[in-house]
Design a protein around this nucleic acid. Structure first.
Lengths: 209, 209, 209, 209
DNA sequence: TATGAATGAGATTTCATTCAT
DNA sequence: AATGAATGAAATCTCATTCAT
């Protein structure tokens, strides 16, 4: 039994060793320019070994995406003060996502890539894995909204729907960063981002008359 | 004299003939799987000829993007009833963008690609061309918002800022379509999209008490 | 008649305009990387025009070589003091060739290229033209040696043979410059070059006992 | 253990098999006209395989050059009679180089190519390898000269400097062979070559009065 | 004379993947 | 488990040259 466990452990180590390299290369050269051969050379493993641990290139990069989603989730968890007001929580999550997109640009890019790339249809099991990890972050939003409703601060909306919408807003707004030097030259990106968040909070809030 | 003009005309025709083929392939196989070789073969030209008309692959696809932005703009123009209320205009534009993303999926994908792809740094002149075309559509939003403010229906916000935010919302929400079969399985995408728009309008509107 | 002459003049101007561009590109990118298309673009002429003035790429570059040989000859003429002693003349010519190889590196490279490249067989007429231009420089050496013999300073060798040998020595020694950073790291190239020349002068000189 | 060694051996065999083909093509068509594609086809390997064994075209041809330098060195070693007088040794080496340039014209051309081509900057490690191989041949000259000095037949010159000069003379004189049919039409090339060598020896020799 | 569109072969290089060992 | 040689298709891009206008 000890043997089996050790094997399992080693297997996991190898896997993350490969993922480490893949991640680094991804950051350096982008998704398309990162090849299995390069990963093999850099990680001092053989090409064959990589194919032993990952069915194909797609599976490897999907694993990285799961990693990214997990990291995002952890970041959010760490950021959100459980004692804070629902509004504050939502703001924190928004900022956490923005920070994540800036500080873990590579992860953000890969998440983004699979979200926006026209083709790429994952096999169902992989897809589920990815979705459940993605869902986790959205759930934090859902909870915050539900909480706000329960405390009579938010209108009685469907928390999950609003959470998804907010998530879409985050996503769309962050992407605008690319236009910072042209269309947005005269508008600060971060201020704009937060303005969007406030707008939606405003719509959510129950106004006391 | 006539010769020069005819040549010029033929040149333009060839160019759009190439773009036609490229566009078709793009639709069929996606950006990454579309190669110059294929475009050449399909358009019954030599590879060299493609390179005679376009400096490189990037220039070709950028041209396609400009085309897409232009088409989007025209679609919006056609859709928006100049007589309608500002709110209605905004709804129309939102729907126009959604339709565009569905009916001209290939164009939407290519616009999206260049917006979200991590790398891709265009030469400045190309970038400006692209941005100015993109700006056109945002301007329609800006006008509608400004109109609403002038008619005392909207709060006195900065119309351009709100327009950009709204644009980001469109963009982010449309991308969620990809999750239709998983995270959004129980939520209709189109309804959600319009709900986001209404939310935004709600925030903008001056409430008469 | 005036018409004919003007035409002739214009023809020559066009030709050297093309050569100017070709030369510049040659200097920038080397022989192999310089294409007719580039020359056309840079010289603001059409590809067709270049082929009107030059039969093919080889002829164009051979013309450049003739130019180079001519320039070398002029340089030597300018350098050599007609009143100086034969020995001095030879030293001057040696230095002139070294300088030429340094200051007109592009010309030297192209001369060198055609001299050392394995294949390249020029059509006879072109070959003769090149040779006669090359000969001119060697003739200056021949004269100096003959003079030295007549003045009883040099042994009664065959002046032309010695001239050709000397020329070969120049050529071989100059090429060693490439090894300056490795094999010759500890040996100054120029000093070595002049040492070789002195060695041969030494062999040529009649020693008075 | 045996497996590893066999693999290593096979690897080396493949490598020289590729080099064989490359060499042959080089001889047939010249450096510039020899493409990786052709090498692959001729050696009945895939293009990819060539790139498995050699990083790029340059590395392949540099390997050929090293081969050539090595062969030259061996030729010299075989030619030079260790018992002979220093003068004789130098003559032998001179002749050996001339023969080498005639009989292994392809190797000579490739050595020559890298020596004279304007650009070509090798990565340092490759450069060192090449230089050390080139050095070997020069060292035989150095030894012969030093020997002559020790035997009081040669003037007390710096043996290494003289060796390098002599090498340059060989190189330059051999290149003149190209002019055999024009400038040198009336002068035998080989005789001229040896005359240059004698001239050099003459300068080196101590004259007994 | 001059143009410039067109060619098509060919260059170098990279890639994901397989499979015998 | 792990290796790494081999593949071969495909990708992007360049080039000298021709020829109808």
């Amino acid at each position: 039994m000890g043997v089996k466990e050790r094997r399992e452990r080693e297997r996991e180590q190898r896997k993350s060793q490969i993922l480490d390299t893949a991640r680094t290369l991804l950051l350096e050269k982008g998704l398309n320019a990162t090849s299995i051969n390069q990963i093999a050379k850099r990680s001092e493993l053989s090409v064959g070994s990589i194919y032993f641990y990952f069915k194909d290139k797609e599976e490897l990069f999907a694993a990285l995406q799961v990693e990214g989603l997990e990291l995002l989730y952890q970041t959010i968890l760490r950021t959100v003060d459980q004692e804070a007001l629902p509004e504050e929580k939502i703001r924190s999550i928004a900022l956490a996502y923005l920070h994540f997109s800036e500080e873990h640009k590579n992860y953000f890019d890969i998440i983004n890539y699979f979200l926006t790339s026209p083709k790429t249809i994952f096999p169902p099991d992989l897809k589920n894995k990815i979705d459940s990890h993605g869902n986790a972050s959205i759930l934090t939003l859902t909870s915050a909204i539900r909480e706000g409703i329960e405390q009579n601060n938010f209108k009685p909306v469907d928390p999950r729907r609003q959470a998804v919408i907010l998530w879409g807003v985050f996503q769309g707004m962050i992407q605008l960063k690319k236009l910072e030097n042209t269309i947005l030259a005269d508008i600060g990106h971060r201020a704009l981002y937060m303005e969007a968040v406030e707008l939606f909070l405003d719509g959510l809030r129950i106004r006391n008359q």
